[in-house]
């Protein structure tokens, strides 16, 4: 059984009066990882920001579990059950790991904060013995875990991730993707933008390719990986996955 979590219908959005994305449509179902890939400047991050109310919306409709959030402010979205993790500067570096997680509960207190935190530390055991450390002192991969952990603290139904593996080593990339699968299996939908397209498609339940701010291709991760056109243009050349 699938339940539609996020429905972006024909949305145009951008900055000032300039639309960057045009008539984009994206759907995210319950417990799905949906990946957006595409060349630089395709409007991937703009799409995430549009969903999260961080830029100008011109036309279209965005609904979240059936409610329109097209005109919602960011501060209203967190309590509704959407969290976001920016690409950079995504932890409070002078706060401890524990405090970073706490901040995640302030806008939308979960039913049982302690249980939620325990659950997140199960997912990210690396963080367990670093709770008192300042987040700024952690490695890039651990910071990414803190960032995702902070986003999960409000018990969201959907998290938006902007290039969660940017700047990470290939080894850590797998660790993070593996964690995202666990996050999904714990009942959270994920909409993410990724540069590491091939690996991202491997864990994606569904994926969209954006080009020049418009929908170009879509399909399950496996379908897109198998598509010659997509492979040639967006996955860095030849070979089957």
């Amino acid at each position: 059984m699938t339940e539609l979590v996020l429905d972006v219908r024909a949305v145009s959005a951008g900055y000032g009066k300039m639309p960057i994305i045009k008539d984009i449509s994206v759907h995210v179902d319950h417990q799905q990882i949906v990946t957006i890939i595409g060349p630089n400047g395709a409007g991937k991050s703009t799409l995430l920001k549009a969903v999260f109310g961080l830029n100008q919306h011109f036309s279209g409709e965005i609904t979240f579990v059936g409610m329109s959030i097209f005109n919602a402010r960011t501060a209203d979205l967190v309590p509704l059950g959407i969290s976001a993790v920016p690409q950079t500067h995504n932890v409070f570096s002078s706060l401890s790991v524990d405090e970073n997680l706490d901040v995640g509960t302030f806008a939308a207190p979960p039913r049982d904060a302690e249980a939620t935190k325990a659950h997140i530390l199960e997912l990210f055991p690396d963080l367990k013995d670093k709770l008192k450390q300042q987040a700024g002192q952690l490695s890039g991969g651990q910071r990414q875990m803190v960032a995702v952990g902070r986003a999960l603290m409000s018990d969201p139904k959907l998290i938006l991730l902007d290039e969660p593996t940017a700047g990470l080593s290939p080894a850590y990339l797998e660790v993070i993707f593996d964690l995202l699968l666990q996050v999904r299996d714990s009942g959270v939908s994920i909409l993410m933008v990724e540069q590491n397209a091939k690996q991202a498609l491997q864990i994606a339940d569904y994926a969209y390719v954006l080009v020049n701010g418009e929908n170009a291709y879509e399909g399950t991760g496996a379908e897109l990986l198998a598509d010659d056109e997509v492979r040639r243009s967006f996955l860095g050349g030849g070979g089957a996955p």
Binding site: T74, P86, H89, F92, E99, D102, S154
Partner: peptide
Amino acid sequence: KSMRAVADDPDLAAVAG
């Protein structure tokens, strides 16, 4: 803690709601 978070990074604090 919220105050320290805003002082640390106001943009992220806004994203965190």
